[in-house]
Design a protein around this nucleic acid. Sequence first.
DNA 1: ATCTTTTCTGACTACTTAATCAGTTAAACC
DNA 2: GGTTTAACTGATTAAGTAGTCAGAAAAGAT
Lengths: 208, 208
Amino acid sequence: MLRQPQKQIANREKNISRIKEAAEYVFAEHGYFGASFSLIAKQAKLPKSNIIYYFTNKETLYRAVVEDIFDIWRSAADSIKKDNDPSTAIAEYIDTKLEMARNRPFGSKVWANEVIQGAPIVQDYMEDELHRWTNDRMVVIQHWIDSGKLRATSARHLLYLIWAGTQHYADFQHQIETLNDNHPLTDEQWQETKYFLKDIILRGICVE
Amino acid sequence: MLRQPQKQIANREKNISRIKEAAEYVFAEHGYFGASFSLIAKQAKLPKSNIIYYFTNKETLYRAVVEDIFDIWRSAADSIKKDNDPSTAIAEYIDTKLEMARNRPFGSKVWANEVIQGAPIVQDYMEDELHRWTNDRMVVIQHWIDSGKLRATSARHLLYLIWAGTQHYADFQHQIETLNDNHPLTDEQWQETKYFLKDIILRGICVE
DNA sequence: ATCTTTTCTGACTACTTAATCAGTTAAACC
DNA sequence: GGTTTAACTGATTAAGTAGTCAGAAAAGAT
């Protein structure tokens, strides 16, 4: 005899991810203060009280959204490992990061908004997780430099340039589309972007 | 006999620029919706009603702040002219843009916030002024490429990379300082940044 | 000195917001 | 089937918001 008592659990998970998706969108488009429960509720097509039932308050929901994005970004840098070939690893990182800019622009925007405003909510997260994570990657890049596999440039600024160059296409998506005569970028244009970023950055850091 | 009847005019100008400065800061730190008249008033040390007296409403004040920043950015690209030497011109542009990131980070942040949220207020500005301005610069860069003074890369993406790479240090200032052990960048670190960006980007676009 | 115009401001209003809570509905358990 | 527990929600509240407005104060004009 089949038992299917997990109706509640399944429903809970469905609702939570639905709320987070709606919230990511609304926080990105309106900022923390501009995003109201009623807007998020409308977007999620759920009653406002239901959202508060799951997340207690605005800040908790917001944190959930930000942490989700951070986890995804973190995984993008899996290729930055000591034993990998630097050019291939960095090319892969740029590719992945740019695909994320294309596929998850709202998360990127939420993060950008938060940092611009001085990270009032996720300050601790930046000081712990991001700080440690960044240092780890920098050690790898420095190792590549020290072993002569990369030109002697700044590991730190290289990371910043990759972040800036890729996230720009998510965060400033609206500006880029406006300058593209109000059209979203086509597949070819995204391809061109990938090629350009890798071309410039790799040329700048590879030993000649 | 001296006449000094311009007391009103002088005072008006003083107040207006004081309000705009305060507003730039508060909009940057809190976003459009998070920035309230009372916060701006407190920052400017003027009564709330006085701010509304000068700017009528929030949107008008906001537009004034955004247009100010845009004007300043525009002037940064004066070096991008057909007859200039490409490397020197672009190096100069990067330098100037990075100095602005350092000296006027709040303006940059306001612009970033606005664009991230889909430019709800300055859409028209982007479609007219920014669009025309960007196209003009792209024509110059394309001319450099066509006359063999630059490698054949994308003029458009080159501009984006310069914007992204420089503005990052304003918009993500807080993240950068957190990763710098909670210290603002020193003069040498800013110098290093300038050097890095020019090194990578120029190496990427100059004919070998 | 008096009148006019501009500058300025505190008190107020209509509205929106995050969050609470009492009460309802639905699922799980026995 | 009946009971317990979790899921859910509409109505309400207290706090904060943008913007109004009547009238005071200062500056300029004659």
